[in-house]
Simulated scan of single mutants.
Amino acid sequence: MPTPTPPTFDQLLAEAEAAPTEGWDFSWFEGRATEARPSWGYARAMGERLGRAGAALDVQTGGGEVLASAPVLPPLAVATEGWAPNVAKASALLHPRGVVVVASPEDAPLPFADGVFDLVTSRHPVTPHFDEIARVLRTGGTYFAQHVGPSSVFELVEYFLGEQPAEVRGARDPEGERAAAEAAGLDVVSLRAERLRMEFHDIGAVVHFLRKVVWMVPGFTVDAYRPRLRELHERIGEEGPFVAHSTRHLFDAVKR
């Protein structure tokens, strides 16, 4: 049986550019890219917390996929999201579960009264606004979240943008975020961090990742980076998958 002809550089680019980017469903990457998962199993642990909560808020919910994975949701369940395509996707997914989805810009104050929730969750917030999180939590309420850590996937970022300054590489430092959380009135019960291997097996996976996770290479387009993309395509063909490392940390904090 003849060996299938591998797709060309242009075919891979066209396929990746045509793929939808809304939501946080990463199934498109199956067989094309891999990422190790943190040992703590955030979605499972979040689901356990939600099952015990009375009123919960999921901040920057994306397309609502992680929240929707919870087996049991509290009587009052609310999610916020700032990107319009994700708001629509999250609404379609979460409304049948009784979750209220609120369109709220990432950098705006949370549109809720003080002390409404006994649990606030978030998976990969762009920026954790600890003052607002603490404000909407009841005394004794919990913030439970998985954050992106410093220099995450920077092998790929710096391939396109060059070496980044120390203040950029050190942004999202978990100890800095611990200090910010405590200053806002949260006691950090547990803070765990891990560095995880990623592999990109073709240039289409790289393009789709950068189109989906837009803050990695701001303003990324195929046309703007075509020469570097071709070089990387050839490198993957000669050397195998492009290896990078993501960083994650798990926040478990209680409002004083």
Score class of each variant (00 low, 15 high):
K89C: 04
P165C: 10
A184S: 13
A184L: 05
G219L: 09
A205Y: 05
A43R: 08
G240M: 01
E238A: 12
R52S: 14
V148S: 08
A171S: 13
L137F: 03
A171D: 13
F242H: 08
L94N: 01
P96H: 04
L76H: 10
G170E: 14
D118C: 04
A183D: 13
R44E: 15
E30H: 14
L110N: 12
T21I: 15
F251R: 07
T8P: 00
V188G: 15
E48P: 06
P4K: 07
P109G: 11
H124F: 10
L73A: 10
W83Y: 14
A179N: 13
V102Y: 00
L250K: 02
Q164P: 09
Q164E: 14
A45H: 12
F9N: 09
V189M: 09
F144N: 06
E65L: 12
S190P: 05
F154M: 12
A79N: 04
A77T: 11
A253C: 04
S246N: 06
G176E: 08
G63C: 00
F220G: 08
F220K: 02
H249E: 11
H201F: 13
M198Q: 07
G82A: 09
G64R: 03
V214G: 15
T127A: 07
D10W: 01
R52Y: 12
E132H: 13
T80I: 08
L161T: 15
T247I: 00
A84D: 02
R49G: 00
H95N: 08
T121D: 01
D114G: 06
E194R: 10
V168T: 11
M1G: 15
L232A: 01
G240V: 05
D187C: 11
L67M: 01
V188I: 08
D107M: 00
S246F: 02
E158P: 07
D25E: 01
M46D: 07
D10E: 15
A244W: 00
G115Q: 10
H124G: 09
A36K: 05
A179E: 11
A134E: 13
R123Y: 06
E48S: 13
M198H: 09
A84H: 05
L232P: 01
V213I: 12
A88G: 12
L161D: 12
A84P: 07
A33D: 15
Q11L: 00
A70D: 10
G82V: 02
D252K: 05
H124P: 03
V153G: 05
G204T: 11
M216C: 14
E132G: 13
W83E: 09
E81V: 00
T34S: 15
A205Q: 04
E22M: 07
T61M: 03
R37C: 06
A166N: 06
R44W: 14
N86D: 14
A14K: 07
G141V: 02
A166Q: 10
V87Q: 02
T3L: 05
I203T: 00
L12V: 08
V59K: 05
T127H: 15
A103Q: 10
V254Y: 03
P6E: 01
P75S: 03
Q146F: 01
A77P: 04
D252Q: 11
N86A: 04
E182A: 11
W24P: 05
H201I: 08
R256N: 06
Y159R: 03
T121W: 00
V206Q: 05
G149N: 07
T142R: 15
D223L: 09
